[in-house]
């Protein structure tokens, strides 16, 4: 798995959470540009991708990754609500969206299983 978030504290908590449900975290990056580069290099099966990134928009990063030949599954996260993004969330090619406040082993598993 690859964790993409510019907030180091969140990346640490997320790593803990993912490892808790038996996932191996192959990398952590803080920008959209690094996310694209590392996702293509490490080829993770899942990318936990924050929408608010300092350089690129997470939705654009997701759309770009989804057009790769072997795209990873992308789960978008944000400190904002899904309603803040409206129809933009539907067309970005991501597997789903989880508000950070609702992020848990259960919510992530439920999304991955769906």
């Amino acid at each position: 798995m690859l964790i993409v978030d510019d907030h180091a504290g969140f990346r640490g908590v997320a790593r803990q959470l993912l490892q808790g449900i038996g996932r191996q975290v192959v990398g952590e990056v803080g920008t959209g540009g690094e996310a694209l580069r590392e996702a293509r290099r490490l080829k993770p099966d899942l990318v936990l991708l924050d929408i608010q990134l300092p350089d690129l928009d997470g939705l654009d990063v997701a759309a770009s990754l989804s057009s790769d030949p072997e795209p990873p599954a992308v789960v978008l996260v944000s400190s904002r609500d899904a309603s803040d993004y409206g129809p933009r969330l539907d067309g970005c090619g991501a597997l789903g969206f989880i508000a950070k406040a609702d992020l848990s082993a259960e919510s992530l598993m439920a999304l991955l299983e769906s």
């Binding site: 969140f10 908590v13 959470l17 808790g20 400190s79 950070k100 406040a101």
Partner: peptide, 12 residues
């Protein structure tokens, strides 16, 4: 962002 991270920490 800080509060959300705190929330997740509390979850852990």
């Amino acid at each position: 962002q800080q509060l959300v991270t705190l929330l997740l920490s509390m979850q852990a």
